[in-house]
């Protein structure tokens, strides 16, 4: 199987533990852009935000502090993914508040038909359970962030978090079921 760009990139940078974001930008830009594209459905892409714009926005948010130093080779991606998550959630809130006219609110999991739920609904749903999940299952929460908001594959997550792919699979399956359960509990 062909290794993704990201994996190559990670490999390439793994020998230099501390590097500045300026150096990293050109290297990860394409990959970040791919991640961004994955976050946007066809219909979304037509509208408000182009993937490139999303990347720029993520980058800007990352660099409130201009000379941030990254602690290790994955630190950057974790922060990047978290930033992406924030952008996606903000955007979904804005749009759903426009749609529902009732202020930004999470939809009720029991009310919606998951097969037909919009990407915005999904983002808001998963996001609303993620902090709770982190308290119970921090590893699972990280896998959800990387996979759901970051779009990384099991293999990439495994590599980043230094566990086997099989473990990632299990963490992912458990975390998904937990998120769903937490959402059901939140409904009550």
């Amino acid at each position: 199987m062909e290794a993704s760009n990201l994996t190559l990139l990670l490999n390439a940078r793994s020998d230099s533990p501390a590097c500045s974001s300026d150096e990293l930008l050109p290297l990860v830009y394409d990959e970040l852009r791919r991640m961004a594209a994955e976050r946007m459905s066809d219909e979304l892409r037509e509208r408000t935000l182009q993937p490139t714009a999303l990347v720029h926005e993520a980058w800007l948010r990352l660099h409130r502090g201009r000379h941030q130093q990254w602690n290790d080779r994955f630190h950057f991606f974790r922060v990047a993914v978290r930033t992406m998550r924030r952008i996606l959630v903000d955007r979904a809130r804005q749009r759903s508040s426009l749609r529902h006219c009732e202020g930004a609110g999470r939809v009720n999991i029991a009310d919606i038909d998951l097969a037909a739920a919009t990407p915005d609904d999904r983002v808001l749903l998963v996001n609303s359970a993620l902090d709770e999940l982190r308290k119970l299952d921090p590893e699972g929460a990280r896998v959800v962030e990387l996979k759901f908001f970051g779009g990384f594959s099991n293999k990439e997550v495994a590599w980043m978090t230094k566990v086997s792919e099989r473990t990632v699979e299990r963490q992912w399956a458990y975390a998904k079921a937990m998120v769903y359960q937490l959402l059901e509990e939140l409904d009550r």
Partner: peptide, 28 residues
């Protein structure tokens, strides 16, 4: 048992396909 029961709906919730960018295969 509860987790097992939630699995199908959970998969539907997380199914990333709603986001899949055309052209590039989704990694997740």
């Amino acid at each position: 048992e509860r987790l097992l029961a939630a699995t199908a709906r959970a998969d539907a919730l997380f199914s990333p396909t709603g986001y899949s960018a055309s052209g590039s295969a989704s990694a997740s």
